[in-house]
Design a protein around this nucleic acid. Structure first.
Lengths: 219, 219
DNA sequence: GGGCACTTGTGAAGCCATGCACAAAGTTGC
DNA sequence: GCAACTTTGTGCATGGCTTCACAAGTGCCC
């Protein structure tokens, strides 16, 4: 389930505040979901709650971590060390959650050898070696859009089956490969869409619609 | 609909290749969705296709842009100019899609005045002025997790109703405010979850489950 | 030890998105 | 101008997700 990380985050926040047990209602509100949905999600993992009391925060935290697979170490490869790749490399949120940036790769020879976040950037010609050397299972694409598909194809060829794409491009993968995308401008576009709606429909009238409207009112 | 930006991107790619018209089947494959779904989505905007021919790429592109609201200029504010804020400020994908990074704000006095991506970083004490001055409607939170809620509250107080949150924290907003979140580690966690599943269920057996299994087979 | 208050886990209903399948509409070739 | 082919737009059925509502289970208080 895609909501488990959300619950995990809410639980972590509660644990930091020293909360020992939490009811589904409270946890649901913290995570911003419906409490019945939360209970159903959790019951799918097993019966980890106590009726009349709630859920033990630390225990549940551990159960979800195990379910997601965070109890093991995941070496992550980042391809494309531009602005975004830099930011991702230095982003502290990964390490604390079971992910370790293990290797960086870029196609620009000028970047090769440069040190970023304590790691030497390798050239993308060495992709094959890097993947084997660090036993990479998860790769992040932070290249320009035009390079994304080619990079992705190479990663798939090297046997990587989990890819996170930040490049603003539609990337195709074969069956059996998990591709997720994080698309910065898409998110902004969705916000803009709603924002436009809020600002009244009048502004959004097209010329055609205006003509229609004028006809309709007999203007 | 959340898929419109996806279609728009696919159309842009086609336009760059010089394609003039496209069938729902082709466009659906490019965008990675079902063709019936695509047609239904588009028909919701109006009848912009021609039976027997398909959709005119540039025309449809324009219609979707208008629907999303990309025909107008959206000044965007970024709060928090750390690694991620830097990357977002320099990210070229925004400008080309109707969004303009208009202002940068950080809580660190040392960063105030620094120039990033051609803009002077302002101090967060001036948030009020900045929002008014640049007529901000959309804000991006790229602060550390612990600051996210406070920043968000201030933005909401200033009348901003569209917020994109990159901070790894659950942030609450009142009714009427649109909050979207881009969560890097959540995405990785979802990948890790599937990756773990692929690597065989045996590895994922808990001690308890192993005992159950042993009992079940009479061991 | 019994009743009460609280909370989980889940059956069941409702809702929304998806996708099939086809009629309507348009185009091309002759 | 007609027939065959292509493609859109959409009614309808299906399936999954969400939510309600409640029985079953647990702890607390007296």
């Amino acid at each position: 389930m895609a909501r488990l990380p959300l619950y995990l985050r809410a639980l972590t926040a509660l644990a930091e505040r020293g909360v020992a047990t939490v009811s589904s209602d409270e946890l649901a509100e913290t995570a911003g979901v419906n409490s019945a949905k939360l209970r159903k999600d959790l019951s799918y993992l097993g019966s980890y709650g106590t009726r009349g009391v709630g859920y033990e925060v630390e225990f549940l935290q551990h159960q979800i971590s195990r379910e997601i697979g965070l109890t093991q170490d995941w070496p992550v490869l980042i391809v494309g060390i531009g602005n975004l790749g830099h930011a991702l490399s230095n982003y502290g949120g990964f390490a604390s959650r079971g992910f370790r940036i293990a290797a960086l790769v870029d196609a620009d020879p000028q970047r090769t050898g440069e040190e970023v976040a304590g790691l030497k950037v390798r050239h993308s010609d060495d992709l094959d070696d890097v993947v084997k050397e660090f036993n990479i299972a998860i790769a992040v694409i932070a290249t320009p859009a035009h390079a994304a598909q080619a990079v992705c194809d190479r990663l798939v060829d090297l046997g990587i089956t989990s890819i996170l794409n930040f490049a603003p491009a539609v990337v195709q993968v074969p069956e059996g490969v998990d591709l997720r995308k994080v698309d910065l401008s898409t998110e902004l576009q969705i916000l803009a869409y709603h924002e436009q709606r809020k600002n009244g429909a009048a502004l959004a009238l097209t010329a055609e619609q205006a003509v229609e409207l004028a006809k309709a009112v007999g203007g």
